[in-house]
Write a protein that binds this DNA or RNA. Structure first.
Lengths: 140, 140
DNA sequence: AAAATCACTTGCAAATTAAAAGTAATTATC
DNA sequence: GATAATTACTTTTAATTTGCAAGTGATTTT
């Protein structure tokens, strides 16, 4: 994979140079919303990413400073993946994607309900969740 | 291209089933921020999309109800592409991507300045721009 | 009538993805 | 303490997608 390609100076284009595929943002989603943190965790997600693709995406996200690899506290056989501040800051992007999907695609009632709650005070949710994530990933 | 794949019920995943590549959101960007509306316009963008890729993405976006093809008022040789409401509603997503890129990647001073303005009142900007786009694409 | 423009399509090589099997280190089990 | 699981990958190979270049056919301009 050529991760270094910077196709233009456009902010959207530059962001897509990193995340413009079907998998990278799902890893971020798992880290932010599902408390997943290991290679095995990510493999278990519903979308069933292939092992080699997962490895290449984790490497790419690490190279781009979005995630970090750490020793797992429970076992030397495990690796702990955490979000950097750069990664945590993707929360607003993922939230707006959620809102768009809720409005324009068919989404499960449970998630709809959750999003309706979040929508009541976006800024507050972002602040609270960001703080939570920073605390969670900071100790490490 | 298989556009029908719905990998899971997750809103993020479903959105990526449509936009999870390096090009689709750039077309939306061009429609929202650059006033582009023809095949030739999109080809001229800095990222230099290949002609066959552009054609396949335009088809995919149309099939997904994000854009529409119309007769061009100026010429029968041209085709006018416009955003649907579903497409216009991607504005908040693109804005948050902009903000993320501005914070974490190197972005030109001019764009930084523009974004700083937008940030002062996000909601207002979104409302104004949305209204503008709806008016623009509604007459057609 | 001829040349240019416009929106594509086609053909092919190169790159990426996906599926499956394999590996090495560590940990749990008998 | 040996054996089987688990964990995080890597490797291999086939299928799909991308990217480049060269068409094509319908308009439009010269």
């Amino acid at each position: 994979m050529n991760n270094k390609a910077n196709r233009s100076g456009c902010p959207i284009s530059s962001m897509l140079d990193i995340f413009g595929d079907k998998w990278s943002l799902l890893i971020i989603r798992d880290l932010i919303f599902s408390g997943k943190s290991t290679y095995g965790d990510f493999l278990k997600s519903d979308e069933k990413i292939a092992t080699n693709i997962l490895a290449s995406r984790l490497l790419s996200l690490e190279e781009n400073g979005v995630i970090k690899k750490l020793e797992h506290p429970d076992s030397k056989a495990k690796v702990l993946y955490i979000l950097t501040d750069k990664g945590i800051d993707l929360l607003p992007v993922l939230l707006e994607i959620h809102f768009w999907s809720e409005k324009h695609l068919s989404i499960s009632p449970e998630i709809q309900l959750l999003l309706k709650e979040v929508k009541k005070d976006k800024e507050k949710f972002i602040k609270t969740k960001t703080k939570e994530l920073k605390a969670m990933f900071d100790v490490k």
